[in-house]
């Protein structure tokens, strides 16, 4: 009887335990600077767990270890110490890379290929061929909105278009996990909002997305959890909800017409329950500049059109 109970418990824990998309244990990358007789620690004992279906943001200044983390998780560079697993597999194994898509920072791709040829090339590398590849290209061109770039060589693409073809090639083999290195760097606010929406759509499709960014507001809008890096170390990690809520105070929204007298009465009313009346403040909520910009630009009729380079 005891044994049966034990088996049942194991089964249920196997079902409920979230499967990890990415796990690192003490992952470290050092670069020896021989001429200076020093060692540069690009990443210092990183412990990280990302669950399947999560959108995870890597934040931090330039050179803080975000790109190094992504390169290690792709098996492009070898760890000096520690271990990384992607779906439980070593990152440089072909099986791991079959389930992973990657958009590098400032991607260039082959400038002499057009949009269709680019996707065809990457698709064939992943073993997607024939009618399946044709169908996939149609879907992705549609998904990233690049109908006007299919026949044009990539050298004539704008920054935003390059980023979108980059996303499409990362998705060509329908991977379960996406690594996006600065997906919105250098893209205009409208373009970056489209990329943000795309990340949210991918999340709805059940994909895991790990991305790095400097644009904090964007991260805030899409990420479930974030980790903040500094000088190769992870200094903070958690869900946005837990990290950003100021637990010391509560915000109440009231109409703007309320005059000073009414505000004073409200303050006294709240103070009756023993709340410190001095701690109650009346301020106007602010829009972020990005919200303002997007509201204004999206109100224009031609907003959705991409503006390619002349």
């Amino acid at each position: 009887m005891g044994a049966i109970t034990k088996i049942r418990t194991m089964e249920s824990s196997a079902v409920t335990a979230p499967t990890l998309a990415v796990e690192t244990i003490g992952l470290t990358k050092r670069y020896p600077l021989t001429w200076k007789r020093k060692v540069l620690v690009a990443l210092d004992s990183l412990n990280l767990q990302v669950k399947q279906g999560e959108v995870f943001g890597l934040l931090g200044p330039n050179g803080s270890g975000k790109s190094t983390t992504l390169k290690l998780l792709l098996g492009l560079i070898v760890a000096s110490e520690g271990e990384a697993r992607v779906f439980g597999l070593p990152p440089d194994s072909l099986d791991a890379r079959r389930r992973v898509g990657f958009l590098p920072e400032n991607p260039y791709f082959y400038a002499f290929l057009n949009g269709d040829e680019t996707l065809r090339f990457y698709g064939k590398l992943c073993g997607v061929t024939g009618a399946k590849l044709d169908k996939r290209i149609e879907e992705l061109i549609d998904l990233v909105g690049l109908q006007n770039g299919r026949e044009r060589p990539l050298r004539s693409y704008s920054k935003g278009m390059l980023q979108r073809i980059g996303l499409a090639q990362a998705l060509i083999h329908d991977p379960d996990l996406l690594f996006l290195d600065e997906p919105t760097a250098g893209v205009d606010p409208l373009g970056s909002a489209q990329i943000r929406d795309l990340i949210l759509r991918l999340k709805k499709m059940g994909k895991t997305v790990i991305f790095s960014s400097h644009l904090l507001e964007q991260v805030q809008e899409v990420a479930d959890r974030v980790a903040i890096f500094s000088l190769g170390k992870k200094v903070l990690e958690g869900s946005l909800e837990s990290l950003l809520t100021e637990n010391q105070s509560t915000q109440v929204l009231i109409p703007a017409e309320m005059n000073a007298e009414q505000q004073d009465r409200l303050r006294q009313f709240i103070a009756r329950d023993g709340v410190d009346a001095q701690a109650i403040r009346f301020t106007r909520p602010h829009l972020s500049l990005e919200q303002l910009y997007l509201r204004t630009v999206q109100a224009q009729p031609d907003a959705a059109k991409d503006s390619p380079k002349p």
Binding site: K71, L74, G75, L76, L94, D95, R97, R98, V100, G101, F102, P104, E105, N106, P107, Y108, F109, Y110, A111, Y122, L125, C126, G127, G166, Q169, H173, F179
Partner: peptide
Amino acid sequence: HNRTIYTILAKPVR
């Protein structure tokens, strides 16, 4: 230089 190598080696290519 063009970083194309990253996009290729991130795919299942040895």
